[in-house]
């Protein structure tokens, strides 16, 4: 086993310290108190650089992108990207939120930082229509290539969709 992957048990940062550490790296990051785990909101411009530093910083070491998904907020016209990060070596977690406009959802790809993002981003493209810049292979993941629309958007409708009985 590679020495740089040995777990550093007991070195997890507390939630407050974690958010503070992220704010040191990216002063514009806002804490998100409505999450049960440490979470920050960053702008789409700050995100690519912050992603690289979150993974590399010796006190943070977020080596695993546990999952990446999105939340559609049609009322405020935005799609909120969610990145759930885990540090296997430190044993702490961080959730990062990034807002992008709903009518032109373009986001930077983080698959250079966490290769698994390549497929997680494809899923988000497939279901939310978010297009990732510099993604090596951006295409639908679950649905057919010629599928119309993005099903996890709140306003998605198609001919054979059933309404919830009231």
């Amino acid at each position: 086993m590679a020495a740089d992957l040995l777990p550093l048990a007991g070195l997890a940062l507390s939630p407050d310290a974690l958010v503070a550490a992220v704010q040191l790296l990216c002063p514009a990051a806002q804490a998100r108190p409505d999450c049960d785990r440490p979470a920050v909101k960053v702008t789409v411009g700050d995100w690519p650089e912050l992603a690289g530093r979150l993974r590399a910083h010796a006190d943070l070491l977020f080596d695993l992108l546990e999952t990446h998904t999105a939340i559609d907020w049609p009322e405020s016209g935005r799609i909120e990207l969610v990145y759930l990060l885990t540090s296997l070596r430190r044993g702490h977690h961080l959730t990062v939120f990034v807002d992008i406009p709903r009518d032109d959802p373009v986001a930077p790809s983080v698959c250079a930082v966490w290769p698994v993002a390549q497929w997680q981003e494809r899923e988000v493209y497939d279901l939310f229509g978010v297009r990732y810049a510099d993604h090596p292979d951006l295409r639908r993941l679950f649905l057919d290539d010629d599928w119309q629309g993005f099903p996890l958007r709140k306003d998605y409708a198609d001919a054979f969709m059933l309404d919830r009985p009231s």
Binding site: D104, Y125, R131, A133, H135, D137, L138, R139, D145
Partner: peptide
């Protein structure tokens, strides 16, 4: 950021 064109299988 440029919007990439999605491809097909």
């Amino acid at each position: 950021m440029t919007a990439p064109a999605p491809t097909t299988l």
